[in-house]
């Protein structure tokens, strides 16, 4: 079981080479297959996630959540997706058409790009970049631009307000996000995600870096635009913020991308702090799934419990609390590393 997917990939290459392809050609085909797999995983995951989110919300609110279609309402999301696909695609007459149309597409592309560096199991990583964490953070921050495109392109004041909020928020929270990861990177001594996972063979970084985990979690919530930091969307204030004018499949793409981001960031959290794919008994790829879903459940739990924070509180929280705390964490970590190295560890 452990090497199930690796074996499939291996036999695919062997079969392709047997057909007379060069090794580079076979790698290329494999890459395409891997991309298709990512898209498939993302889509299926989102279907499960939306269902899960509704169920979690339902249970917390003492309701049942969706339960009509399929076992425990599992197919509800599929039905919704079909509904969204068949909806009319409305583009406001005053909208900047090109920007309006491309924003959701870029958003989903960026979200999918995050998966390239995530180790999904022992050896299951599409590209093992030596600057994996850096890549992840920089690509994740690109989604701001898409939200700004959506907000600007809609030519709607609500959307623009949402987009501006999202830019301000993401820029402020990028810093504590990166800083809180720095502590882990310092201990692991590498920016490569596979190295970081390997470094957690004995002890998870959540134990060594509890403060960094909390700050990372808070910053990630803001980065993902999830409640209580869902400023750009802000249903009750900005109607739907940047997504106000979107309908049908374009809106669904935003939704898809948001959940894709959620999975990616949760997977990053489990990779960086929860030992990645390490775990006893079960195959590595099951472990990462379990950990990712646990992190996502906490995200959902928070979203459905807390009210939305105010924009200025949000900003001051980032600059006045999170950044100093993360900086202090880096300082303490560095001192600790030097101290332990001096002790001869």
């Amino acid at each position: 079981m452990e090497h199930f997917f690796l074996n499939i990939a291996h036999s695919l290459i062997v079969w392709l080479m047997g057909l007379g392809l060069s090794s580079k050609g076979a790698d290329l085909v494999l890459l395409i297959v891997q991309w298709i797999c990512i898209v498939a995983i993302v889509t299926i995951n989102v279907i499960v996630l939306i269902w899960l989110e509704r169920k979690v919300a339902g249970f917390m609110q003492q309701r049942l959540g969706p339960n009509r279609l399929g076992p425990a309402g599992m197919f509800q999301t599929i039905a919704d997706a079909i509904k969204l696909l068949t909806k009319e695609d409305i583009i406001p007459s005053a909208a900047d058409r090109i920007i309006f149309r491309t924003a959701p597409i870029f958003f989903i592309i960026i979200a999918v790009m995050l998966y390239v560096v995530l180790p999904m199991g022992d050896g299951m990583q599409i590209v093992d970049l030596n600057v994996g964490v850096f890549y992840f953070i920089s690509v994740a921050s690109l989604s701001t631009i898409c939200l700004l495109m959506a907000g600007w392109g809609s030519n709607n004041k609500w959307s623009l307000l949402g987009a501006m909020r999202s830019v301000a928020q993401m820029i402020s929270y990028e810093i504590p996000l990166a800083f809180s990861l720095l502590g882990v990177i310092m201990i692991a001594g590498s920016l490569s995600l596979s190295d970081i996972v390997a470094a957690q063979n004995n002890i998870w970084f959540i134990i060594l870096q509890p403060v960094a985990f909390i700050t990372f979690f808070i910053a990630a919530t803001a980065e993902l635009n999830r409640g209580p930091f869902d400023m750009p969307e802000a249903e009750q204030e900005l109607t739907a913020g940047a997504y106000t004018e979107y309908t049908g499949m374009r809106w669904a793409l935003f939704f898809l991308a948001e959940y894709t981001n959620l999975v990616a960031v949760s997977a990053l959290a489990s990779t960086m702090f929860l030992g990645g794919w390490h775990g006893p008994w079960l195959p590595s790829w099951i472990w990462i799934i379990i950990k990712t879903y646990l992190v996502m459940l906490i995200f959902m739990w928070m979203k459905w419990t807390f009210p939305r924070i105010r924009m200025d509180h949000l900003m001051s929280f980032s600059w006045k609390v999170l950044i100093p705390v993360t900086l202090a964490n880096i300082l303490v970590t560095g001192a600790g590393i030097q101290f332990l190295a001096g002790m001869g560890w």
């Binding site: 919300a57 609110q61 249903e235 009750q236 419990t305 939305r308």
Partner: peptide
């Protein structure tokens, strides 16, 4: 008040 500030769950408890 809770739901206007974004805490959806509070509303349901009050309605209950």
């Amino acid at each position: 008040c809770a739901i206007d500030l974004g805490a959806t769950t509070g509303l349901i408890y009050c309605l209950r």
